Computed example of a mutant assay.
Amino acid sequence: MQKEPLKKRKIVTFGEVLMRLSPSDNRKLLQAMQLDFFFGGTEMNVAASLANFDVEVQHVTNVSNDIVGEAAIATLRKYGIDISAVKKVPHPLGLYFLEVGSAMRSSQIAYNRLNSSFAKISPEQVDWEEILSGCGIFHWSGISPAVSEGAYQTLKLGLELAQQKGIVVTADPAYRSNLWNYGRNSGEVLKELISLSNIFIGGVTEINEILKTEYTSDKDGFIAASKALIAEFPSVKKVFDKVRSSINASWQKIYGRAWTGEEYISTSELEITNVVDRIGTGDAFAAGLLYGLQNFADNEALDFANAACALKHTHVGDVNLVSVEEVLEVAKGKTDGRIKR
């Protein structure tokens, strides 16, 4: 188990900022006369949550050079994210449409991100040497290298430099088969990038996809899968996983587990019986884990991540907007939701 937290230094995230368009009150699109919009995106959600926890965090991305891009930048600035590495380019911001499900009706998403501003990013647009100065953790997800060749090459360059500098790299593989349309083999790319990473945020499903194995999802299967991943990628030292049980779209149960390289640890299960919004819950887990690793030992970091994930289910939008104090309360067992006066 980790005895001492990681040093509290800047965290860098890399990924697309998307505009989400969604009907309110669980309406389907065909019922809606107007749409609410939010800005999000996997790595941006992590960055915003970390900034909300008062962590110094810098996000690297491209946005559109228009009023939509300006609104996206204003949102990043509002959250407290360092936007000095955000570039404005003459391509549209990516969009996605979300119908929020309820009970037995699943949520549905449709993306419009082909040829987006982030898809057009290229290595020469990003000064990784400057960005990674003073950085303690570099976080990436498997969504970014799936978007385009430029995004893949830009991320790879950053990870190689991070490795040279001894920066801790956290990887959320987040495999999305429908995104890999530009010619690269997803398995080969993810293996290459995971080999440049130190902490893996994912479970048996992701490991099986990467290693082409068939480990089971129970405790023994998770431990065996984690050991196999570390054997394949020696730079990876620890595996953290969020386990979800879905009763229906409105009722979820989650717990966290990890293989620390030495032992198996897990959290208690948290039950969310009235899900408001599931989008960004995995990102909330990742952000909670990164905050936890800079402040606590592994077991407490995992408890913090699980509580942060649970709380994200309780409010609308892509970003987890709860405080450190709120997360700690839930992590320590306070789940009654009583009014605070």
Rank of each mutant, 00 (worst) to 15 (best):
R9M: 15
R9F: 13
L18D: 06
P23V: 06
R27G: 03
Q31V: 00
M33A: 12
L35C: 07
F39H: 04
G41I: 07
T42R: 01
E56Q: 15
V60L: 07
N62Q: 10
L76H: 02
K78P: 00
L93F: 02
Q108F: 00
N112W: 07
S117C: 11
F118I: 12
D127F: 05
S144K: 07
A146Q: 14
A151S: 10
Y152D: 03
L155W: 07
L155F: 08
G166T: 03
G187V: 10
E188I: 15
E192Y: 15
S195V: 00
S197V: 12
T213Y: 08
T213E: 11
K219M: 08
A225H: 02
L229S: 06
F240R: 09
V243M: 11
S245L: 12
N248Y: 06
Q252I: 15
K253Y: 00
I254D: 02
G261N: 09
E269T: 13
L270R: 04
I272S: 00
N274C: 09
N274Q: 13
N274P: 05
V276P: 10
D283S: 15
F285T: 09
N295H: 13
N295V: 01
F296C: 00
A297S: 09
A301V: 09
D303W: 02
A305K: 14
L311P: 05
N320G: 11
N320F: 12
V327Y: 00
L328K: 05
K332W: 13
K334Y: 09
D336H: 13
